[in-house]
Design a protein around this nucleic acid. Structure first.
Lengths: 237, 237
DNA sequence: CTTGACACAGAACGAATGTTCAAGTAATAT
DNA sequence: ATATTACTTGAACATTCGTTCTGTGTCAAG
């Protein structure tokens, strides 16, 4: 996780919850339920929300009325919390990463892939800069991050566009459901697919439901290069 | 007994209920339940309260959200629900930009949106960090950058997903084909659409081909808030 | 006196919603 | 490694709370 002081400050989810409450209340005139916070803050369980609500109360940002629906009120307006956020931004601001842009994911040709001895700072390759706290990657894995540019629109079904930059974590293995960059030896190409290990075979699922999955029985013919952790798209200004 | 005029005004109980709601809301920060109104207004049954709430809504004094606990709000002035904007520029550090995350783009609800005198830092926002050299925006315009989080999947085939963060450049005008965040006065919402000025009308094209474009003839009913310059998607690591 | 609109009582139903727990995973400290 | 703390999951449970329904009483007009 990101370097963050837990005792005093608010982490990303605290802020998200707090922001959701304020937003909702301003919009509807009454505070949200736990489940409504869950949806809007993209959290996964009511108990997670409850967990953070307790902490926000502990820290004095909100007050809860137990057992009462929508029993929430914001004590410190978030403006007060901005100072905290600011602090965190300052903390992490010099904490950014230059990620090597190692190549392109092209449908028709193999890509130069960072070998195990690839250096984080390669004068030749171009770099992209990402704040560490933007990366959903634990600190210790941050050295395994690299980036590639997508060329062609073969990945459109995965919501990834021509010209997008995908940021990947280098890994030889993937868990089911991960979006991975995978080298297909037979097709002589690297693509982005959703990865599912089904035991006797590997299923590579395009995001586009109209496209059929690819089944791999011989694991030696594929090579997982990395797991997608972020996608960045620049549009023309 | 008092002469109760039915059609026009409010009788004693209407007022009592109304005042109870306001009082309660001011005190606790959230609206009362029907039963709480019952106690405080010294009424004898929940159905009585319900009865008067319906009438108050009929008369336009309150708004009810059916089936929702504490789903009440007093319709007076839409006070300055928009967040007070505090501002602070700490951006100068390094080559980094802390971009205010000003809210969400939600299909079904209005969002508090920075007004025309929008300042870089919003009270209700958290920030995201982007390297300046990552932004396809000239340095001088960098103060006009802000970010929003997308909620809902109406933009799915614009390659924009639920949970994505879109980074926008504040602008009142757009060029044809730009993806813009646009405020629809009629619908009271902000959405992402492709913008096309067709002379006598504006066409707002959803990316989803199953959805019909929106045509705007009265330009005063829409407001372009910004042009999308970047999309960032974080995946779970 | 009926009739009907209005105001109210009381209870019961079911959906909405807060709470809790047992167990799991991940990050961090020892 | 191992222990420890921090966080997450998913579900079940219990209560709160909006709704609805049946019935009662009032009052004024026909």
């Amino acid at each position: 996780m990101m370097a963050r002081k837990k005792s005093a400050g608010l982490n990303e989810k605290h802020i998200k919850v707090l922001q959701t409450i304020e937003n909702f209340t301003n919009t509807f005139g009454y505070p949200p339920t736990i489940r409504e916070i869950m949806e809007r803050a993209h959290l996964s369980s009511t108990s997670v929300v409850n967990y953070y609500l307790d902490q926000l109360e502990e820290k004095g940002y909100i007050e809860r009325s137990r057992g009462i629906s929508r029993g929430l009120r914001v004590l410190k307006q978030f403006s007060d919390a901005v100072a905290v956020v600011t602090e965190q931004v300052l903390e992490t601001v010099h904490d950014f990463l230059s990620i090597p842009l190692v190549g392109r994911i092209v449908a028709s040709e193999p890509i130069p892939f960072p070998s195990s001895d690839f250096k984080p700072y390669d004068a030749e390759s171009s770099m992209i800069s990402i704040a560490k706290d933007m990366l959903p990657v634990p600190e210790k894995n941050i050295g395994d991050i690299f980036a590639m540019e997508v060329s062609g629109d073969s990945m459109i079904d995965a919501m990834v566009n021509d010209g997008d930059i995908v940021i990947l974590k280098k890994t030889g293995e993937a868990r089911n459901g991960d979006m991975v960059a995978i080298w297909l030896n037979d097709n002589n190409e690297t693509t982005l697919k959703y990865f599912f290990d089904e035991g006797k075979r590997i299923r590579l699922q395009p995001a586009n439901p109209t496209m059929d999955p690819i089944y791999i029985r011989d694991r030696s013919t594929v090579e997982v290069h990395g797991k997608v952790v972020m996608v960045v798209r620049k549009l023309s200004a």
